[in-house]
Amino acid sequence: MKIEEHNLKEEIKDIVGKSIKSGISNEGCSIFRVMREEQYSPKGKAVILDNDFYEKIIYQCNLCKACENTITGSKLCEAFQKARQVLVLQKKEIPANKEMINNLQKTGNVYGIRDS
C-alpha cells in the first residue's frame, strides 16, 4: 500500500468512526431517498468505509453535505471525497470519472462542451 493511500485511509477512519458513534441521520440524503437501500445512505457508506471496504458505491454521493451534522461537527462528505481518492489510487475509477477527466483535459469543463 502506498503511504498516501495509507494516510488517507487513516484520516477516513477517524472521521467515519466519530460520525458513526454520534449517529448519522439519513433523512436529508437525496440519493437514499430515491434508492431506499441502506448501502446508498450516508450511514451505510460510513459503515462500509469503517470496515475498510473501498467500493465504487462511494461515487454515489452528491457531496451536498445534507448528512453532515453541524452539532456534532461530523464531516462525512470530506471522508467520501478522500475515499474517492483512495479508489483512484486503487484504479477503481468508474467510466464516467475517466470521461470527466478526459473532458477536463480537452475542454476545461467536465461536460466536454466546446461551444456555448
Binding site: E38, K45, N51, E55, I57
Partner: peptide, 13 residues
C-alpha cells in the same frame, strides 16, 4: 439485492 458481500456489512449493524 445485487450488492456485493462488502456492501452488505451496512445491513449487519
Amino acid at each position: 439485492t445485487k450488492m456485493n458481500k462488502n456492501e452488505m456489512v451496512c445491513y449487519g449493524t
